[in-house]
């Protein structure tokens, strides 16, 4: 069949192509980055792709999430299924597995079983640090990538006992961070981040080594920066250091969600308490939320038709919802 890969094979070689076709990549998240990476990998002839996402397609995704259509949004199709439908039409030879689940410390190891590479396309740091723990435990390379606004950043987490892990780089779960819902996003930066991640995957699968390098690009201003992070490996890191406890994989740092009975509301408690600057958040979120009320303990507002009360320690109550996966998705799209 393989005339279809002729031009790629000229570049990565016969052996590289043959490895591609025998390899398995797990994609965590099927939003903008996941859509872009999946399409490139499927066109490149990856052997097997696992598509994981907890959410369904909405109209406001279509501006940048390239695999989805207006029909998918009208039918509330889960992203993992809508993606598989489109990807199957692009290349019927790729084995696809759709997983419509929230990734947590109970299921991550099973979801990534047999993966040669894990590609990061999620929208929050907690899931990233969880995947980081699991990837380190099983020695699977994990390609961090993220974007907001016109800015994107990538770094391969090599799990080779030498380079820093994502936990070494971040040191801690960020207190708050910009998200695509609060700061906006333009499509071209998604393509840049996904292109870098997929290139890293192609290199790994062709037997090449990657440098532990943090790479960032603002596609609007043209600012590009690159930092060699080899020296940032932390010997006391809880995820990859000498006494590693894998705090995200063992569940200690995991956010808890409970449905508040009789109130059609979900209570969210971060695993590690935050200390949010609520007035600053209210200002940052001016375009995303409305009906804002604030006092020294909390911020109450309306966001995508839900009344949300957010406390300084990061706890939140989301009203008008009893689906905890959906509630988590709303929380992450705001708080990051």
């Amino acid at each position: 069949m393989q005339d279809r890969y002729r031009k790629q094979e000229l570049f990565i070689g016969k052996e590289g192509q043959s490895r591609m076709e025998k390899s398995k990549i797990v994609l965590i998240g099927m939003g903008a980055l996941g859509s872009a990476s999946a399409e490139m990998l499927v066109r490149a002839g990856i052997g097997e792709l696992v598509l994981i996402d907890r959410d369904y397609v909405e109209l406001h995704n279509l501006q940048r999430q390239q695999l989805y259509t207006e029909e998918d949004a009208a039918a509330y199709l889960p992203k993992a299924s809508a993606a598989a439908k489109r990807l199957k039409a692009i290349n019927q030879h790729v084995k696809l597995q759709s997983v419509i689940e929230n990734v947590d410390h109970h299921n991550i190891e099973q979801l990534m079983e047999g993966a040669d590479v894990i590609l990061d396309a999620t929208d929050n740091f907690e899931t990233r640090l969880l995947v980081n723990d699991a990837a380190l435990k099983h020695g699977i390379p994990y390609l961090y990538g993220a974007c907001v606004g016109s800015y994107g950043v990538t770094c391969p987490i090599l799990a080779n006992g030498d380079a820093p892990c994502l936990h070494c780089l971040l040191e801690q779960l960020p207190q708050q961070s910009e998200t695509c819902d609060t700061a906006g996003i333009i499509g071209p930066i998604v393509q840049w981040v996904a292109a870098v991640q997929v290139t890293q995957a192609l290199r790994l699968l062709s037997g090449q080594k990657l440098k532990a390098e943090l790479c960032a690009f603002d596609i609007w201003t043209g600012d590009y920066s690159r930092v060699d992070v080899r020296g940032l490996r932390d010997a006391s890191c809880p995820s990859c250091g000498m006494d590693a406890v894998l705090p995200f994989l063992n569940g200690a740092e995991q956010t808890r969600l409970d449905v508040l009975c009789g109130r059609e509301a979900v209570h969210i408690r971060p695993g590690a308490k935050k200390s949010l600057n609520l007035p600053a958040l209210a200002e940052e979120w001016a375009f995303a939320v409305d009906h804002v009320t604030a006092n020294e303990h909390l911020l109450a507002f309306r966001y995508r038709e839900h009344r949300i009360v957010l406390f300084t320690d990061g706890r939140a109550i989301i009203h008008g919802i009893d689906d905890i996966v959906r509630a988590r998705s709303l929380y992450d799209s705001l708080v990051g």
């Binding site: 993220a146 974007c147 910009e178 695509c180 700061a183 930092v227």
Partner: peptide, 10 residues
């Protein structure tokens, strides 16, 4: 100076 800040969107 080289500066890279982490973001979480995707």
């Amino acid at each position: 100076v080289e500066l890279v800040h982490f973001v979480g969107g995707g």
